[in-house]
Lab assay of single mutants.
Amino acid sequence: VTLFVASYDYEARTEDDLSFHKGEKFQILNSSEGDWWEARSLTTGETGYIPSNYVAPV
């Protein structure tokens, strides 16, 4: 399981994006799509795309 933590807050801009807060942890589901990764929030359980430059490895 690949875990990352949010370095910043992010507000979703499309329905496919995932909003999150600094400190929130994610399981990365797919990182092969470039700068936007499909992730599941371990806080909310929601799945969506997050900007990879807003998160760091745990």
Results as ranks from 00 to 15, higher is better:
T43E: 14
W36S: 06
P57K: 08
H21I: 12
D9R: 04
T14H: 14
G23S: 03
K22T: 07
W37Q: 02
R13N: 09
T47S: 09
W36V: 07
K22Q: 08
E33M: 14
N53K: 13
F26L: 08
T44L: 02
V58Q: 08
L42V: 08
Q27T: 09
Y49W: 15
V58Y: 12
R13M: 11
Y8S: 09
D17K: 15
V5W: 06
F20A: 01
H21F: 13
Y54R: 08
S19K: 04
S7V: 15
K25Y: 15
A6W: 03
I50Y: 00
V58R: 04
G23L: 03
S19D: 04
G45M: 07
L42H: 04
Y49F: 12
G45R: 04
P57R: 07
R13E: 10
Y49T: 07
N53W: 15
L18K: 01
L3M: 10
V1D: 12
G45V: 02
S32W: 09
T14C: 15
N30R: 08
Y49I: 09
G34P: 14
D9C: 12
L3P: 04
E46F: 11
S19Y: 03
E11M: 11
E46R: 15
E46P: 01
L42A: 05
N53M: 12
S31D: 13
D17S: 14
L29K: 05
V5F: 06
E24Q: 06
D16C: 15
A6R: 00
E24L: 03
G23I: 01
I50M: 02
G48M: 03
D16F: 15
Y10G: 00
L18I: 10
Y10C: 05
F20T: 03
W36I: 07
Q27Y: 14
A56D: 08
F26Y: 01
V58G: 06
N30K: 09
F4Q: 03
T43Q: 08
G23Q: 01
S19P: 05
T44K: 03
S19L: 02
R40K: 11
P57H: 06
T43I: 08
S41V: 05
F20G: 01
Y49C: 13
D16H: 15
L29D: 03
V55I: 10
H21W: 08
A39Y: 03
L3A: 06
S52Q: 07
V5K: 05
E24H: 07
F20R: 00
V55P: 02
S52V: 08
H21K: 15
S31F: 15
V1L: 13
G48P: 00
E33H: 14
E33W: 10
E11W: 09
K25P: 06
G48S: 02
S19N: 06
K25I: 15
A12R: 08
D16Y: 15
Y54H: 08
W37V: 05
E24C: 06
S31G: 09
N53P: 06
S52N: 06
N30H: 07
Y54D: 02
T47W: 08
I50R: 00
Y8K: 11
G23H: 04
D16A: 14
H21S: 13
W37A: 01
T44G: 03
T2C: 15
G23C: 06
E46N: 11
A12N: 04
G23K: 02
T44Y: 02
P57W: 06
L3E: 08
S7G: 08
G48N: 01
I28D: 00
G45T: 03
E24T: 08
N30T: 08
S52P: 07
E15Y: 10
E46G: 07
D16P: 04
Y10V: 01
Y49A: 05
Y54C: 12
L18P: 00
F4R: 03
D9T: 07
H21A: 11
L3D: 05
A12T: 04
L18H: 01
E11A: 10
T14W: 13
Y54G: 06
V58C: 12
S41L: 07
E15K: 13
G23F: 05
W37L: 07
E38L: 15
S19F: 02
Q27L: 14
L42M: 11
A56Q: 14
L29C: 08
A6L: 01
S19H: 07
P51N: 09
V5E: 09
S31V: 10
S32A: 11
I50N: 01
V58N: 06
A39G: 05
A39D: 01
P51A: 04
I50H: 00
A6M: 01
E46D: 09
S7K: 15
T43G: 06
G45A: 04
E38A: 08
A39Q: 00
F26E: 00
I28S: 01
I28N: 01
K25V: 15
R40N: 03
L29M: 08
I28W: 02
Y49Q: 08
R40L: 11
V55D: 02
D17R: 15
S52R: 12
D17G: 15
E24M: 06
R40F: 09
D9H: 06
G45C: 10
L42F: 07
Y8A: 12
L18S: 00
F26S: 00
K22D: 02
T2D: 10
A12C: 06
V5M: 10
E11T: 13
W36R: 14
V1P: 11
S41M: 05
K22W: 05
S41T: 03
N30P: 04
P51W: 08
S41Y: 02
Q27H: 11
D9E: 06
A12K: 08
V55K: 03
T14K: 13
W36F: 10
P51C: 11
F26Q: 00
Y10H: 05
Y54L: 13
P57I: 08
L42K: 03
Y49S: 06
E33A: 13
E24V: 04
S52M: 09
E15I: 11
T47C: 10
P57D: 04
E15G: 13
D35K: 09
V5Q: 09
S19C: 05
W37C: 04
Q27F: 13
V5Y: 08
G34C: 13
V5N: 02
T47Q: 09
T44N: 06
I28T: 01
T2K: 11
L18W: 04
K22E: 07
A6V: 03
A39M: 05
G48W: 04
E11S: 10
W37R: 00
A56W: 10
Y8F: 12
